[in-house]
Write a protein that binds this DNA or RNA. Structure first.
Lengths: 146, 146
DNA sequence: AGATAACCGGAACGATTCGGTCTGATTTGC
DNA sequence: GCAAATCAGACCGAATCGTTCCGGTTATCT
């Protein structure tokens, strides 16, 4: 139930990138300085994030990163899926492989897709713009918990 | 974003135990046979589950396991928390330790508790009774996604 | 009372994944 | 044409996770 460190770092990195939304590009090194993360780690992250279409990378001298979409159109679910792949709590959900020993008799497997969808929905409700702001701990989650 | 195998097995085990709700106790070995899981693994799981108050264990000859509560009062969140501890996507959430390098300047950390609560809410909405039934893939999650 | 059956806790081993570092390929600017 | 700065992929060590084994405790049956 724990997010991988890479996904955690990706959220921090994207949040830092969103703060530079004002046009001019940012280098991966600069993002590393701002976030305090190791530079090679940030480089690895931006590779995955740009491959997923969340960041736009321009190479060469004076290159750098830029958000591919407005920050409001990028959610936590997008970032997590970009780094960790499809959101699925169990291996049963994402591919047809049932290595389960009881295959057909398993009564819980049919319910995992619904759980995954609920989880993904909770993450998709949090845009990047919200993570860049400094405060407001509440107001979210209450609606889902009820 | 993947559930640990132990938590996955715990759900299967609890679901199998729920099918024996009719009074008489079940041995851990019998649960292992029904689920196809290794017997030592099931034993380790029932230890944690009974310590968490989800299963009631009676020792001695003709002993066995029994649900400590009605199946309707046990949710996915209970089982996951019993095996994996508190539901928290990041280490920032559950204890005061901030090993983050930027501590005070981190703008995303205040938002993690809300995300955790939303996630836990999604899992708490699924009772054990629902997992024992054979079908009905949909009907859940739609409300949370909206 | 002895023996059996079942649960309980800790410790050690092996495998897999994760996180971090390094080197190479590509593009732009002068 | 050269050089600087960037992204992109491959390698490696380390930590965690999952599994198995062992001895101990408790209550029932003979």
């Amino acid at each position: 139930m724990r997010l991988s460190s890479m996904a955690d770092y990706a959220v921090v990195t994207m949040s830092a990138a969103a703060r530079h939304c004002g046009g001019h590009r940012v280098s991966a090194q600069q993002l590393a300085d701002e976030t305090g993360l190791p530079a090679p780690t940030v480089q690895k992250l931006v590779s995955k994030l740009s491959a997923a279409g969340l960041l736009k990378a321009v190479r060469g001298a004076h290159g750098g990163l830029k958000l591919a979409r407005p920050a409001a159109a990028i959610t936590l679910a997008d970032i997590v899926e970009a780094v960790e792949g499809p959101i699925a709590l169990t291996p049963c959900s994402d591919h047809g492989r049932h290595d389960c020993t009881l295959e057909s008799a398993c009564t819980v497997r049919p319910h995992w897709p619904a759980v995954d969808a609920a989880l993904r929905g909770a993450l998709a409700g949090i845009p990047l713009t919200q993570l860049s702001r400094p405060a407001a701990t509440a107001a979210l989650g209450a609606e889902v918990m009820a």
